[in-house]
Structure formats: C-alpha cells, structure tokens
Design a protein around this nucleic acid. Structure first.
Lengths: 110, 110
DNA sequence: AGAACCTTATCACGTTCGTGTGAAGGTCAA
DNA sequence: TTGACCTTCACACGAACGTGATAAGGTTCT
C-alpha cells in the first residue's frame, strides 16, 4: 500500500518537479534512499518532509538556503553558540521597532 | 574616549566599507543610532556586532541573509516551531552520513 | 525489443545577494 | 566659505539561487 515512490511519482504526489526533488537532495533538505540501481525512493517520511518544506516556503517565505542554514545551526554546536551570542547582543528592542517601521514604509513605497 | 564613530571612521576601524555598513543596516543586522541631522553613529555595541558578523562569515562562511534568517528564527515563534518540527523529522542520522560523504567527494572533484 | 521510466551532466535564464562607484545634495568645523 | 565629511539614490556587475529543458545513457516491465 505505502510502497516507496520513485522520483516522478513523488513529484506528482508532492507538487514539486522531479528536477526540484533532485535539487532538494543536493541541497541536503530531503534525502531519499536509493535502489541498488541508483533510483531515488521516497517513503512517507520523505513525502512528509517535502510537504513541510513546501509549507515553510508558502507560509513564511523561507528560502531553501535558509532552511539549509537552520539545519547547520541544528547540527554544529559552535556555530549555534556563536550565532546565539550575536543575537543576544544585537537584539536591543529599542532601536529595533523604529527600524522595522522604516522597513515597512520602504515596502509600501514599491 | 569612546565617542560614537561616524560611518567612515567605523568603517576604517571595523574593516568593512562604509557602503557595507549602510547595507548591513538595511539588512537589519547592525543598526546604528542617528544624530539629529541623520548621521549614523556607531558606539561600542555596534562596533562589536560588526566584528561578530565579520567573524561569523570568516569562520563559518555564514551569509548575511542567513544571519537575518537566524534573527527571524529568534523573533518569530511560530516560524521557529515549524522549522524545529521539520528538523526533528528530517534528521535521521543514517542516510545523512553517506550524503555528507558524497558532498565531500563532489567538492573534491572541483 | 521497445516503451517508459530512471540516472548524471550541462546550458540557459531570471532573480537576489554582496559590493563598488558615482551623482546630487546636506552638515560641520576651520 | 570652502573642504571633508555625511546623506539617499541609482547603475553596474559577478556570483549564487531556483528552476526548466535537453542530451546521453542505464533499468525495468511487458
């Protein structure tokens, strides 16, 4: 019933193109298993991740590189610590609000 | 002694160009205060952030957009939760190692 | 064997990022 | 007032991203 899908079927079922499934693999975002002959196999887990990535882009406008970076943050402790330190220092809420407001105005002017 | 620096001085002292200091502000990464006439003022905090961003790029190859995304992750809870959910599901250490290895080989072939 | 898949690799193309350069004009100190 | 700063704005340009198309060849099913 839930046989793993080959790339074309997974594409049709997920809304991505086959090309993009390969690209997503190269970017490290969704890693299918392989058949002995090298065919990509997408199981339920992978199909789910495909859907999640799609949602993250649609709902939050997240770029693929940014997701890859989130994965790096998750896996590389010293990187995460360095970024955290920067964030803690950089986030003074005072100047921030005005800046956000100016950004908004810039967007409206387009 | 520690007077806030104007953009050119801050540039000279931090290793960035004045252009990039303005770009970093627009990207929301380092937000200087302003003099009544509109001049940017970089105090110790800002100079520190400039150094930190520089280090993050040098040591980890972090892109500016990625840092901006880290800031988003920090500030938007629902985004952070969605990404976390995806990471938890996506990170099966088994297929990962082989993939990392292939990536390495790809880089060596260049 | 042939059709319909799959593989990797390449070219192409529009968009964004990161950065420099320059124009047109405001600010400030000697 | 003049020179050296600063401001915003815009043009340019290489590199990378995201995506499609296409070629040359392997696999699988009937």
């Amino acid at each position: 019933m839930h046989e793993p899908l080959t790339v074309g079927a997974a594409a049709a079922q997920s809304g991505w193109s086959a090309r993009m499934l390969r690209y997503l693999e190269e970017a490290g975002l969704v890693l299918p298993r392989r058949t002995p002959a090298g065919y990509r196999l997408y199981g339920l887990a992978e199909l789910n991740r495909l859907r999640t990535v799609r949602d993250l882009r649609r709902r939050f406008g997240v770029e693929l590189t940014e997701l890859a970076f989130a994965r790096r943050l998750w896996r590389e402790r010293d990187l995460r610590e360095a970024v955290d330190a920067w964030l803690a220092a950089a986030d003074d809420a005072t100047s921030w609000v005005e800046w956000e407001q100016r950004k908004h105005e810039r967007l409206l002017a387009a």
